[in-house]
Amino acid sequence: MDIRELKKLENKRKMNKGYMWALFCAILWGIWYIPGTIIWAVPPFDAMWVDIDATHGGSMATIVVALLISAFNALTVIVALLIWNGYLGKLGEMKRTLKEFHPCSKWFFLASIFGGPIAILGSFIAIGFIGAGFAAVAALTYPVIGSILARQWYGEQISKRAWMGILVIIVGGLTIFVGGAIAEISAGNLSYIGYIGGLMAALGWGIEGAIAGKGLDIAEPDVGITIRFLGENLLYWVILIPIAALAGYPILEYALQAFTPLAMLVLGFAGITFGFCYVCWYKSFPLIGVGRGQGIGNLYGLCAVIFMYLFMAQVPAWTVLIGGALCVLGSFVMISEETGEMESLRGE
């Protein structure tokens, strides 16, 4: 084999590795919706909802419980990520990266705003108001936002084939989404706040990916993602939870009651699946780019529907099956792209 062919093979291997990380991300992300659904019925979160519902109404109760669940989700994710970085021997690199706030770690803190209190909280709001199936598919359009921002902001190359794949995935996502919404409208119980939550998830994750891509230029992905969750924890536990407590919600009382074996087991499961889904997501970006990483990561919508069917007996509608099939097709369109000649993801 000559040098040229070896080089081509090396590039192909690199891209395949990136696609593999993105696929792992999709599977773990899909699994995350199981603990993300169960936790609402686990003490003290169930009692917390009933308590706040009695004084402030059901909608407010769902939002405040979603806030506390999101905060605990961030807490268990950071524990999982710190253990992961300790195992990889990257705690020293984390300290070095954290110190470089202006050139580097600020991007991860900024990403945490969009990924945390906007996307993840929005997703929990969508789960709380409508359901996990909806929450999963509602965010499916986020790669469009991520791809366009990455292209405009730092000139990331997106081939026509990659665009085609992204578009097929989006059509699949919308098929699932619109099918569910029409059924809800005809049943007369459309939950607007849940749909806003879904929109928050799509926008938040799309913007987060593009911002994180900027930081990942000059940081290691394992370290970058941990700093991003450090930022999210600070946002919840230092700003948002105290604000909710000052506003008169019994959020701190219930936060202290959440340290039970059952709640910690479910939250730990959420932390491990979500933490490593994010590790895989961030690891895929430097190898295949934000657009492709998000496009393949989008298979989480289909994975979530499958896992919710297998473990929670939630039977998907026919629109979900068609949309899911389109998502798989779109991902294969992207993966089948000829990448042997592609050495860089940027315009240069």
Binding site: I3, E343, S344, L345
Partner: peptide, 29 residues
Amino acid sequence: DILELASGGMLKSVESKIDEDGVYKKGFL
């Protein structure tokens, strides 16, 4: 990390050779 920098367009490969002497990993590019 070097590979990621190249993938991100910050470094550019100008020459390649097969590692026949095992200076990095024998047989690798």
